[in-house]
Nucleic acid binder design. Sequence first.
DNA 1: ATGGCGCCCATTGGGCGA
Length: 255
Amino acid sequence: MQKIATWNVNSLKVRLPQVLQWLADNPVDVLALQETKLTDDKFPAAEIEAAGYHVAFSGQKTYNGVAILSRHPITDVVKNNPRYEDLQQRIIAATIDGMRIVCAYIPNGQSLESEKYQYKLQWLDALHDWLQDECRQHPKLALMGDYNIAPEDRDVHDPAAWVGQNLVSPPERAAFVRLLGLELTDAFRMFEQPEKLFSWWDYRQMGFRLNRGMRIDHILLSPPLAAQCTACVIDRAPRKWEQPSDHAPVIATLG
DNA sequence: ATGGCGCCCATTGGGCGA
């Protein structure tokens, strides 16, 4: 039995104690992190290794930054999409225990009128094209991270208030469906789930307490991994801790 | 229409996230 997880930590500098605590409570095999917001020279590799994890990371100052933590050795690390020149550090991929793990922090987009929205759509196009190759080369592939896309209305606390907006707009959702077209399966939706389960809540206006959230963090699995998957849950516990990330971890159980 | 909160860099305000 294996567990793989993803968590946007919104600054690993601030959240390192929580990541270590969470790993102590949830000793997953693989944890993909987004928004580490650290240059590589400041990455807390020693502390993470002391907790029994191998680590690979790709960061920058202030923004973005991704990492993969693993109980098992990490090989064949790729940073960024080789098909898309990007100054922002948003992708790290690696082979772990026969699985290809792709950790992605998909651009937010800001608003439909923003240049960042165009960047988001182009970035997603390039991700799709690269993943097509990756999936061919690595039958056991997991794409996990912060997608900044709520795939369906049931992934939004108040769909009527969000119609057409960034995170739910039809072009973004189409890009998500296009990723599913690579024979990838949304692990969360493989199972019966209660309504109104989300992975992100705004810090403001009591977003978490009122459960005004969105499900924008996802684990997509290729056919052999989907066939092995027995559960997928969102762990709301760390969102209740002091000084939390605004995202909760998503965990898939394999085998 | 704007800001709310939290983090970051670098001042005491502004950018950004989602």
